[in-house]
Simulated assay, not measured.
Amino acid sequence: MSHMPAVDTPDHAPLEYTPQVAEATDHIYPKVRHLVTEAEWQLYAPLIDAIDRLKRERNACVLAHNYQAPEIFYGISDYVGDSLGLARQAAQSTADVIVMCGVHFMAETAKLLNPERTVLIPDTEAGCSLAESITPADIRELRRQHPGMPVVTYVNTSAAVKAECDICCTSSNAVEIVESLDSDRVIFLPDGHLARYVASHTDVEIISWRGVCIVHDEFRVSDMRALRRQHPGIRVAVHPECKEEVQHEADVVGSTSQLQGYIDAERPEKIALITECTMSGNLSSQFPDTEFIQPCSLCPYMKKITLAKVYESLRTLEPTVEIPDAIAQGARAALARMLAV
């Protein structure tokens, strides 16, 4: 090999693509070959190898959301999944250090479920438009307007917001959580589109909030119809954070884990996942006989997590996620109620 590409890590220590690195990482590349060029891989592989060594030294595990880039999803993750799956894995973890390759509320969830462990978020600016759409004061005002009504919060919220609520939910268990409360009326926040989806699947009256996910809110009915014209016979699978009229155009509506389950069961010839488009690339490795048509909408927050930032976070054990005890107690109780259901 005449030229060994090197990548500069945040601490400026170059990591080179050596024969030893190649030997340690070459088994991963076939999974991402159609998504990552050889030149890119020779930059990623030294970081993957270095992260793997740090994971062993730190007794660390990496949780990666379905929307993470393939070099993270396949290269360094110990567990992958949607927010509910990652919450369950965090609750069961025996690692000393948990690295969340996702967004900040997911890292807070991992910390709430593992208060004695170190939880790292490689970029503190990996936020969420939904989490930013509501505050604890907003919930207190909703409780004042609707006294005695239970409050369900989507996990895409801050720990401070969770602490003001009765129970959490994810997109995959939202209907089940609402119906578990044995109430005719429920406050459901912050995603307005998900609230309407839940309302259409239960007799419980839903009092909703006006939050949206900036990724899913972008999709339009015209996009769905154009897909069907351009790709006859295509299946269209939509996330419930999309607009109600977009959901009505779908063959199936579900969380990221439910959409993956649909593909596994149906094995469609062609499918469009109406969600963050990195998920299509990641699943294309798992389902090579399905053609994934990608009407792409990227989450700018998820993309803040990179291999270089994960490496630096594990190297320095920073930035850590810390939650004040007064907030953690209430937020942990809301999460525990969800996991119990």
Rank of each mutant, 00 (worst) to 15 (best):
H231G: 08
H231N: 15
H239G: 07
R229S: 14
V246L: 10
W209K: 00
V236S: 00
R229T: 13
D251T: 06
I207K: 02
E205R: 13
D251S: 07
E249T: 08
P232I: 10
D223G: 08
G211K: 00
S222M: 09
R210M: 07
I234V: 14
D223N: 13
E241M: 09
V221F: 07
A226I: 03
H248F: 09
C242L: 06
E241P: 03
R228L: 08
W209F: 15
V215L: 01
H216K: 06
E249D: 12
V246M: 10
V246W: 05
M224G: 00
K243D: 13
K243T: 01
K243F: 12
V253H: 10
R210D: 12
A237D: 05
Q247A: 07
E244R: 11
M224D: 00
I234R: 03
K243M: 06
H239W: 07
I234M: 05
H231K: 06
V221L: 05
E249H: 04
V246Y: 02
H231S: 09
A237V: 14
E205H: 14
I214Q: 11
D223S: 08
A237Y: 05
V215W: 00
V215P: 00
I207L: 15
A226R: 15
L227R: 04
D223H: 14
A226D: 15
V253K: 06
P232S: 09
I206H: 01
V212A: 01
E244F: 11
C242T: 06
R225M: 11
I234A: 04
I234S: 04
D251Q: 10
P240K: 08
V246S: 07
H239Y: 11
E218N: 11
I234F: 11
Q230M: 14
E241L: 06
V236L: 13
E218S: 12
L227G: 02
I214Y: 13
I234L: 13
H231V: 04
E249F: 06
V252I: 14
R235D: 14
F219N: 00
Q247N: 12
V252N: 08
R220K: 14
A226Q: 15
G233L: 05
R225E: 14
G211Y: 01
R210F: 04
H248Y: 12
D223C: 06
Q230I: 01
I207C: 07
I206G: 02
D217A: 12
F219V: 01
C213P: 04
P232F: 07
A250C: 11
H216L: 02
C242A: 13
A226F: 09
V215C: 06
C213N: 04
V236N: 03
G233I: 01
D223L: 03
R229V: 09
V215F: 04
L227C: 06
R229Q: 15
H248L: 13
C213V: 03
H231A: 05
R235A: 12
R228W: 09
I234C: 05
V215N: 01
D223M: 10
V236T: 09
I214W: 04
R228G: 08
E245S: 14
H239A: 06
Q247M: 15
I214F: 11
E218L: 12
D223R: 06
R229D: 15
R225K: 13
D217F: 01
K243C: 00
V212P: 00
A226L: 14
D223K: 05
H239T: 11
E241G: 05
S222I: 10
M224C: 14
E218Q: 15
A250Y: 10
I206Y: 01
V238T: 09
E205G: 07
